[in-house]
Design a protein around this nucleic acid. Sequence first.
DNA 1: GGGGATGCTGAGAGTCCGCTGAGAGACACG
DNA 2: CGTGTCTCTCAGCGGACTCTCAGCATCCCC
Lengths: 225, 225
Amino acid sequence: MRVLVVEDEQNIAAAVDRGLRAEEFDVDIAENGEKALGLIRHNDYAVIVLDLMLPGRNGYDVCRTLRAAGITTPVLILTAKDGEYDEADALDLGADDYLTKPFSFVVLLARIRALLRRSTPQRSPVLRAGDLWLDPAAHRCGRGDERLDLTPREFGLLEFMLRNPDTVVSKTELLAQVWDAWFEGDPNIVEVYVGYLRRKIDTPFGRSAIETVRGVGYRLDAKGG
Amino acid sequence: MRVLVVEDEQNIAAAVDRGLRAEEFDVDIAENGEKALGLIRHNDYAVIVLDLMLPGRNGYDVCRTLRAAGITTPVLILTAKDGEYDEADALDLGADDYLTKPFSFVVLLARIRALLRRSTPQRSPVLRAGDLWLDPAAHRCGRGDERLDLTPREFGLLEFMLRNPDTVVSKTELLAQVWDAWFEGDPNIVEVYVGYLRRKIDTPFGRSAIETVRGVGYRLDAKGG
DNA sequence: GGGGATGCTGAGAGTCCGCTGAGAGACACG
DNA sequence: CGTGTCTCTCAGCGGACTCTCAGCATCCCC
């Protein structure tokens, strides 16, 4: 668990550093915005603790730059009670939480832990095509209320097709994506597995989500057939 | 991009509303389940943000009703950490993603964007000539609402002509582009396939999108005939 | 209006493509 | 060591598609 602390006041930085290390975190300290952005670019932090009042590029600036670059690492803002930014600003500029100085270290630690808890279960959303659904994270899928029992290969095939609904995917593409890029066997394997899949997701329901496009490939109907 | 936010807590609803509008979304707010279902029935939302704890019909109820009605709009559930429903429930009842309160707006926005990316995959543009259309990615085509069932060769021929509307293309050019550059058979094959195509895209509709230019080739009318 | 050139069309044959059932090999588990 | 599950290969079938060919229609120039 790596944490970046952006803070120019030496004593605060040192205190936080010491405290977090005692809690088994890896800590990096940046004393200004430039250094912070440099570190963030080259490291993968679990949380960033960011003081707003910094020399040069301030915290406000750092946070916006960060978000603009598509970095979604949780940011905890530190503000002075009498500062020019208030809590609303802090959240508006892309922070996930804020803390007003002075704060106790226990509170800071609690907030950091809360952010970590929240950001770790990054589950991918459920894929859908009509009443056909597949949850990649839970590795479950079904049609309507009925659960479907698929083998790993069948599951992979369906997942890939659900990620490309209403698009024809060729057998070679499927081989490369669902099997592996260097697959050298008989491409007929795709037909075989499409057959298996149909017998599980279509035939029993009298539907046809997977359509054959002769000479081109297969297409999953976005409405589920 | 229209988003429905179902949330009874005024301050949260207002904050989300403000944030989403700043990001160029059209936002509707519903403060209870009844109103939400009413709005959903009459509008086409890109995403629905749904709080589970609502007065009257709760979010659980709303989501199930929605799915039962065959509406597949992505739903993002908001749950309180200490609520009676957990994430597993949220996904089981037909949601696409969930977020635990408290959440930061950036995270919410990121999740909404992820759902949008999935439901509106950027696809190659659909080719058109009047009411005649062809979607290369989905490998589908039709005239108006009517779908046309073409063989691969017919499809290739129509696609090429749609990419060169109002332009005379010679038979040798068609042979080279739709068949292959080394084609050595009877060039009459082009006439044969133009015939097949006409019988599918023109004759049944009393139209004539493909015109013969004697001694030169064929031209597809950009207005679809 | 004749006649050659050009384009259209129906019939049919051969080929290619995709689907399926049977079964072998790999692997995990009891 | 047997049993069950999963993955993959193979061969045959049936049907869809492509293409050829020959005869007919149409156009255009003389």
